[in-house]
Simulated assay, not measured.
Amino acid sequence: MTTWHHEERLAAVLDAVRERAARRVLDLGCGDGDLFVRLAAEPGIARLVGLDIDAPALDRLRARLAKDPPRVPDVAVRDASMIDPPPGLAGFDCAVLLETIEHIPPDRLSALERALFRTLRPARVVVTTPNAEFNPLLGVPAHRMRHPDHRFEWDRARFRRWSTRAAQAWGYAVRFRDVAGRHPALGGASQMAVFDRADPGPSIAANPNGR
């Protein structure tokens, strides 16, 4: 991925957070903080929490925050899994998963769904993930993925099926956009789904699929 692609992803996610006027934001899989430090500078955010299981990456993020103190008054970085999140994080205005789900084993995606849409249940969820259709334009051979730690890479149809089913199961509406490129046939380097909770309150909806 080029720096331009990465900046385009960051800008798209920030736009989605600002569009919601989110004041409480979760950065799930925050890593060493390319998105987190930008969110920490957003004047409209009052509480920001980042989760990741990569301790060295979190140390790098903490060092970045120490050099450039956040504008957000309540900032926390936790060594924790998004699949088994710590208590006290339910009902945030927005949760972001930036190029994160592709690092999760496919057989754990149902657990992620439950944690995200049932346990955390934010008003908005923003998910970006690589678009496998775009890989040839990046020089990625058909038998490989963009990063050795990726467990899968979905084309746009597969991502839309997963997102649409999850949205219907958990009481969200979802919309999609291409990110970092607009090839007429292959879309963008990444793809983004924005889920908005249908009910106005923090109550937990039943999952009709039992997943």
Results as ranks from 00 to 15, higher is better:
Val127Ser: 01
Ile53Arg: 14
Ala41Cys: 11
Ala206Ile: 12
Arg47Asp: 10
Tyr172Asn: 00
Phe92Gln: 03
Ala132Lys: 07
Ala142Gly: 14
Thr119Arg: 09
Arg24Lys: 12
Pro86Met: 06
Asp178Trp: 06
Val13Asn: 04
Ile83Lys: 04
Asn209Ser: 14
Arg144Pro: 08
Ala22Met: 07
Gly187Phe: 01
Arg211Phe: 13
Thr164Arg: 00
Gly50Phe: 02
Gly88Ser: 06
Leu89Trp: 01
Ala63Phe: 11
Gly188Pro: 03
Asp93Cys: 05
Pro184Arg: 08
Pro148Trp: 07
His143Ser: 15
Phe134Ile: 06
Gly188Met: 02
Asp52Trp: 05
Ala16Leu: 11
Val126Gln: 01
Arg158Pro: 05
Val174Tyr: 00
Ala198Leu: 15
Arg182Lys: 15
Arg182Gln: 15
Phe152Ser: 03
Glu113Met: 03
Asp178Val: 06
Ala157Tyr: 11
Arg177Gly: 11
Trp4Met: 15
Pro148Lys: 09
Phe92Asp: 01
Arg124Asp: 08
Asp59Val: 15
Ala180Arg: 01
Pro106Val: 10
Ile104Tyr: 01
Arg158Ala: 13
Gly91Met: 05
Arg20Lys: 15
Glu19Asn: 14
Ser81Tyr: 02
Arg158Asn: 12
Arg60Asn: 10
Leu89Ile: 09
Leu97His: 05
Asp34Gly: 15
Asp34Val: 14
Arg47His: 12
Asn135Ser: 08
Ala142Trp: 14
Ala205Met: 13
Ile83Thr: 07
Ser190Met: 11
Arg64Pro: 03
Gly44Ile: 11
Arg160Thr: 11
Pro122Cys: 05
Arg38Phe: 09
Pro208Gly: 04
Asp149Arg: 11
Val96Gln: 04
Ala41Phe: 09
Arg121Trp: 08
Asn207Trp: 04
Pro141Asp: 10
Ala193Val: 02
Glu19His: 15
His6Arg: 14
Asp34Pro: 12
Ala206Lys: 13
Pro130Lys: 01
Leu26Tyr: 02
Ile104Val: 08
Gly210Met: 09
Leu48Val: 09
Leu89Phe: 03
Ala12Tyr: 01
Ala169Phe: 05
Glu19Val: 13
Ala111Asp: 12
Arg78Met: 12
Pro70Lys: 04
Ala157Ser: 13
Pro202Ile: 10
Leu26His: 02
Gly171Ala: 01
Val126Glu: 02
Arg64Cys: 04
Arg144Trp: 12
Asp93Tyr: 05
Ala167Gln: 00
His150Arg: 03
Asn209Pro: 14
Arg20Ser: 10
His5Gly: 13
Val179Leu: 06
Pro141Met: 12
Gln168Asp: 13
Pro43Gly: 05
Leu26Met: 06
Ala180Asn: 05
Val194Asp: 00
Pro200Arg: 11
Arg71Val: 11
Asp59Ser: 14
Pro70Leu: 04
Asp178Thr: 10
Ala132Pro: 05
Leu120His: 01
Arg71Trp: 08
Phe176Trp: 03
Ala63Arg: 11
